[in-house]
C-alpha cells in the first residue's frame, strides 16, 4: 500500500517468472505434446495468433461478469442490510440462502437456458448467483460488529434505531463489504465461464470449449490466462478501492 519494500514489490513477479520457467523447461524436458500440456511459449504464440478473437470473447466475458456482479452487489447489499438489521429477516432468510448457495451453479445453467435461451442472460444470472452470497454474509456481519457500548452511548442520548444504523452500523459494515467485493468479483468470473462453457456461443468459456473440441489446447490455456489476468485486474481494482475508502480499518 504505502511503503512496500523493493523485495515485496518484486516478489510476485519473481514467482510468476519462476513458475513459467519451470513450466517451459519441464514440458520440454519431458517432451510433452502441446495437446497434452502446451509450453508457455506455445500459449503465447496462440495468444498472438488468435488475439482478435480472444479480445472479442474476453470483452464479452468481462461485460457479462461485470453486469452479473453489479446485480450481485445490489442484491447482496439489500439482503445483507435486511438480514443484519432485522433478526426476524435473519432467521427467515438465512437457511434458504445457505441452501441456495450450496447448490452447484453449473446445475442451474441448463434450467436457465430453458428459460432464457443460450447466450448472455444465463451467464449474467450465473455470475450473479455465485457471487452475491459472500456480500450478504459480509454486510450482515459488518452490521453485527457494532460495539454494544457504542450503541448504549447513542441510545442514552435518545438516538433511534435507524440513527444508530446510519451513524454506526453502515460505516462499520464498510470494511467487510469491500473485503467481500474482492472475493466476489473473482467468483463472478467463475460463474460466467461456467455458463459460457455449458451454453453459449460467445465469451472466453465458449472459446475454450470450442478450442478443446479441436484439441487446440494452447488456445484453451490462452483463454485461461486471459481470465486469470482479468480476475487479477478486477481484484486489485477493488482492493485499491478498499484501501482508499476504508483505510481507517487497517493498521
Amino acid at each position: 500500500m504505502n511503503s512496500k519494500s523493493l523485495q515485496e514489490r518484486l516478489a510476485p513477479w519473481v514467482v510468476i517468472i519462476v513458475v513459467f520457467f519451470v513450466w517451459e523447461f519441464g514440458t520440454r524436458a519431458l517432451g510433452l505434446q502441446p495437446f497434452i500440456l502446451p509450453k508457455p511459449t506455445d500459449v503465447y504464440a496462440s495468444l498472438i495468433r488468435w488475439w482478435d478473437q480472444i479480445q472479442f470473447h474476453a470483452v464479452h466475458t468481462l461485460t457479462t461478469t461485470v453486469t452479473g456482479f453489479a446485480i450481485a452487489v445490489a442484491l447482496g447489499i439489500t439482503l445483507g442490510l435486511l438480514v443484519g438489521y432485522s433478526r426476524l429477516a435473519y432467521h427467515a432468510l438465512y437457511p434458504i440462502m445457505i441452501g441456495f448457495n450450496s447448490v452447484p451453479k453449473v446445475a442451474l445453467v441448463p434450467v436457465l437456458v430453458i428459460w432464457f435461451g443460450i447466450g448472455t442472460v444465463p451467464a449474467i444470472i450465473t455470475a450473479c448467483a455465485i457471487s452475491f452470497f459472500p456480500i450478504v454474509v459480509n454486510v450482515a456481519t459488518g452490521l453485527a460488529t457494532v460495539e454494544p457500548e457504542l450503541e448504549d452511548v447513542l441510545r442514552s442520548l435518545g438516538a433511534k434505531r435507524h440513527d444508530i444504523f446510519l451513524k454506526v452500523g453502515l460505516p462499520s459494515a464498510m470494511p467487510y463489504f469491500f473485503a467481500s467485493l474482492k472475493v466476489s468479483v473473482t467468483l463472478a468470473f467463475v460463474g460466467t465461464i461456467i455458463s459460457e462453457t455449458v451454453a453459449s456461443n460467445r465469451g472466453v468459456g465458449y472459446l475454450m470449449i470450442a478450442a478443446s473440441g479441436r484439441f487446440d489446447v494452447p488456445l484453451v490455456f490462452a483463454g485461461l490466462f486471459v481470465i486469470a489476468v482479468m480476475g487479477i485486474v478486477l481484484y486489485e481494482g477493488f482492493a485499491y478501492m478498499e484501501r482508499k475508502l476504508t483505510g481507517w480499518a487497517y493498521r
Partner: peptide, 18 residues
C-alpha cells in the same frame, strides 16, 4: 426512557475507527 442528560464512558473506549 433515555433522558439525554447522561454521558457515558466504558472500559473499552469504543470510538468509531472511521
Amino acid at each position: 426512557k433515555p433522558l439525554g442528560i447522561v454521558g457515558m464512558a466504558f472500559q473499552n473506549p469504543s470510538l468509531m475507527p472511521w
